[in-house]
Design a protein around this nucleic acid. Structure first.
Lengths: 168, 168
DNA sequence: AGTGTTAGGTTATAATATAACATATTGGGC
DNA sequence: GCCCAATATGTTATATTATAACCTAACACT
């Protein structure tokens, strides 16, 4: 089957052997650049939260972030974490996955967007793409219902190839 | 633009004037039939919860259901509601909308499925469709990532035509 | 240095959901 | 009809996720 390429892949499923420290580094560098450019303040707390979210390619819950923040010395309360998350989301540095109540780093914070997410139900890894054809199809279907779609955020659960191979 | 019809509309946005008692009646009748056919027990509690969910075409939260259940005499606790919801979901009589932590009745419980939902952010009304083309596109994109999609559940927020007209 | 804005601290609580165990009800075989 | 096993519901407690409200600190700009 031939598929027209309409999707930009924002993040793929990576082998467990990949150099993840590099991912983190790149993410933080990009975040710094984006914030710099847009006059946003990537404060130490926000930076640290972003770093924790990028700890892996799996989404992480707010209270898990909270625990890890609290380890490093001073006690930290929920609002601190939720504020940092709100900031990071508003800068498109982080997405919330509603189906998991969890947050994942975005590999392409270049502009505000809401992507399509594939979530492995076994290892929790997430891949993100931005597919214009799908968005278009959605908009078309919406139109037939007289609906104006604003936020084609899509979450699909399933199995990544590694987990599917490993045992199903 | 020509759009190939690949979507079955499960529920549309309806005018506020529509005969909603009819919707409820139909939903309960279908539920009875489905349960009968599949040997499932639509007990009084489950039936009542389904009825409350069908109170409107807008999703309703578990604790809102709980409050209304508790009004009719005996006190009711969260597990009661969550169990009823779990049953109704397993029978495809109700869907959960993750983006709202809320539940909505399904107009077509004929078989297990996960649809595409358009949610008006102003009046909260929901329309549901089942679009094979979209599911296919999703599966294609998933395949390029080596991902096996299992649950193409989609929620899109936006404005229904009525709310868009009314003032934006 | 003064001031207005933004970020973070702190306390309390809201909202959503489930674990674990006890009791009741149901359907089916005898 | 009676008993049993399975299913459904009651009950208590608590987990998990998220926000309100108010206060203090840091910063950016003049």
């Amino acid at each position: 089957m031939m598929t027209i390429q309409t999707a930009s892949v924002i993040s793929k499923f990576l082998p467990s052997t990949h150099d993840h420290s590099h991912c983190i580094e790149v993410a933080l560098d990009r975040a710094t650049a984006v914030c710099d450019l847009q006059g946003l303040r990537l404060t130490p707390i926000r930076r640290r939260v972003l770093e924790l979210i990028w700890h892996s390619h799996a989404p992480i819950g707010a209270y898990s972030i909270l625990k890890q923040l609290a380890q490093n010395g001073r006690k930290t309360m929920p609002p601190t974490v939720y504020r940092a998350i709100a900031f990071l989301r508003s800068a498109s540095l982080v997405h919330r996955l509603d189906s998991l109540n969890a947050y994942v780093g975005c590999g392409d914070p270049s502009e505000a967007h809401s992507g399509q997410f594939f979530i492995c139900r076994k290892c929790d890894s997430v891949a993100e793409i931005h597919d214009t054809a799908m968005a278009g199809l959605l908009a078309d279907q919406a139109a037939t219902l007289g609906f104006h779609a604003e936020n084609p955020h899509i979450e699909v659960s399933g199995l990544c190839s590694r987990c599917e191979k490993s045992n199903r």
